[in-house]
Computed example of a mutant assay.
Amino acid sequence: MMHLVPAAAARAAVASRADRPATSIVHESPDARLVVFRLAPGQEVPPHRNASTVMLTVLEGAGVLSGADGDERACVTGDVVVYAPNETHAMRAIDEELLLLATITPRPGEVR
């Protein structure tokens, strides 16, 4: 058994540059990758795609999550948003810090 504390990992994550969100991989296996993000107010992860399903869980804070067609939804602690394989997605902190857990799982039949 492995015990992870994603919110603590997100708080401890270090950004590669001051203007970029902090990220850290907290678990990686052939069937799942868990990545935490810490976005300061005004920071964003620009629109991008992933070949796998992506589930974003808001660990702390509030912000905006974007999906296909540029639709945006406010998000708060406890929300979970699921993106289909190859669906464009983005995230943005507005007025407060935003801590997220991204659970990335391969598509059925796909091996990493």
Results as ranks from 00 to 15, higher is better:
20 R>T: 11
41 P>I: 07
48 H>K: 02
17 R>V: 08
2 M>F: 06
3 H>R: 12
104 I>L: 10
93 A>Q: 03
12 A>I: 08
66 S>V: 08
105 T>G: 00
49 R>S: 04
38 R>V: 07
57 T>Q: 15
56 L>Y: 11
104 I>H: 03
93 A>N: 04
69 D>C: 02
104 I>A: 05
102 A>N: 11
62 A>T: 07
104 I>R: 05
104 I>Q: 05
57 T>H: 14
103 T>F: 01
81 V>E: 10
20 R>W: 12
67 G>S: 04
62 A>L: 02
33 R>T: 15
32 A>D: 09
77 T>E: 15
1 M>T: 12
91 M>P: 00
50 N>Y: 01
48 H>R: 04
26 V>D: 01
31 D>A: 13
110 E>S: 11
52 S>G: 15
43 Q>E: 14
25 I>A: 12
58 V>H: 00
33 R>I: 12
85 P>V: 02
47 P>A: 13
92 R>N: 10
33 R>W: 03
75 C>A: 15
87 E>A: 09
91 M>D: 11
78 G>H: 04
88 T>Q: 09
109 G>H: 06
79 D>T: 11
20 R>K: 12
78 G>A: 07
5 V>D: 15
90 A>E: 08
23 T>N: 07
3 H>W: 04
11 R>C: 08
12 A>W: 07
8 A>E: 15
4 L>A: 03
47 P>S: 09
108 P>E: 13
46 P>M: 10
47 P>Q: 08
29 S>W: 02
33 R>E: 13
6 P>R: 02
35 V>C: 04
87 E>Q: 06
97 E>Q: 12
30 P>S: 08
103 T>A: 13
71 D>Q: 13
100 L>F: 07
83 Y>D: 08
66 S>L: 12
44 E>N: 13
97 E>P: 01
99 L>M: 08
98 L>Y: 02
105 T>F: 01
73 R>P: 00
28 E>D: 11
110 E>A: 14
75 C>R: 03
31 D>V: 13
50 N>V: 10
104 I>K: 05
43 Q>L: 07
105 T>M: 10
6 P>V: 06
8 A>G: 05
50 N>D: 15
90 A>H: 04
68 A>D: 14
29 S>N: 09
24 S>Y: 01
49 R>E: 13
97 E>S: 12
87 E>L: 02
70 G>D: 07
89 H>P: 00
89 H>A: 06
14 V>L: 09
12 A>F: 06
103 T>C: 12
108 P>H: 03
35 V>F: 00
79 D>H: 11
16 S>W: 10
65 L>W: 06
88 T>P: 01
45 V>M: 14
44 E>I: 09
1 M>R: 11
102 A>V: 10
12 A>Q: 14
52 S>R: 08
2 M>S: 11
78 G>Q: 08
13 A>C: 05
40 A>H: 10
97 E>T: 15
76 V>S: 10
52 S>H: 11
40 A>L: 14
18 A>Y: 03
81 V>N: 04
25 I>Q: 10
63 G>D: 07
71 D>G: 03
23 T>Y: 00
